[in-house]
């Protein structure tokens, strides 16, 4: 290549670790997470903020990382599904497994991040409210019912613990 592509420095705290990279200004945050940092648990489904596959937590709040450019995340904290990972399943992951809340698994990380934020928020939700909260992430395999069951059971489990379970 003869021309140098203009880059900007992006410094983000991802799952508690500082990550610094020089990226094209137009780099999508989801591409930054997946292909620059290698955190491929977060997926891509539509690149227009509808399907929610790319949902991560941005300073603790769920956002669609296909709608944000990596430089916009500079100085912020991102939490992805990988933050839950250990030898044993996180209680939220366990709830999804026990309730068969996933089939192909493609939407699962986004559902987990959405539910994690709900747990941390700690506000009780009725059925309709919970469905609305989950409506930001689409799933084509499960019909949502077992996802709903999984999240409901997780929220019941974490109630009062501030989502630290």
């Amino acid at each position: 290549m003869t021309e140098t592509i203009e880059t900007v420095r992006v410094s983000v705290k991802v799952n508690g670790e500082e990550a610094v990279r020089d990226v094209e200004p137009r780099r999508q945050l989801v591409d930054f997470l997946r292909h620059d940092l290698g955190l491929t648990g977060t997926h891509v489904g539509c690149e227009q903020g509808v399907c929610g596959m790319c949902t991560v937590l941005f300073d603790g709040e769920p956002i669609k990382s296909c709608l944000m450019l990596a430089p916009q995340a500079d100085g912020h904290e991102i939490t992805t599904v990988e933050s839950l990972n250990g030898e044993e399943l996180h209680p939220l992951q366990r709830a999804f497994k026990e309730h068969h809340g996933l089939q192909c698994g493609y939407c699962t990380p986004a559902m987990l991040m959405t539910a994690l934020a709900l747990g941390r928020r700690g506000v009780p939700l009725d059925r309709e409210q919970l469905e609305e909260e989950l409506a930001g992430v689409l799933c084509r395999c499960t019909g949502y019912q077992k996802i709903y069951d999984a999240v409901e059971s997780y929220l019941a489990e974490t109630a009062g613990s501030g989502g630290t379970a």
């Binding site: 891509v44 999804f96 699962t108």
Partner: peptide
Amino acid sequence: DERLVRGLGRFVDDVD
């Protein structure tokens, strides 16, 4: 589920 709930499935775009 052990891999999928961890986001450790390997879909095509996960390999670079």
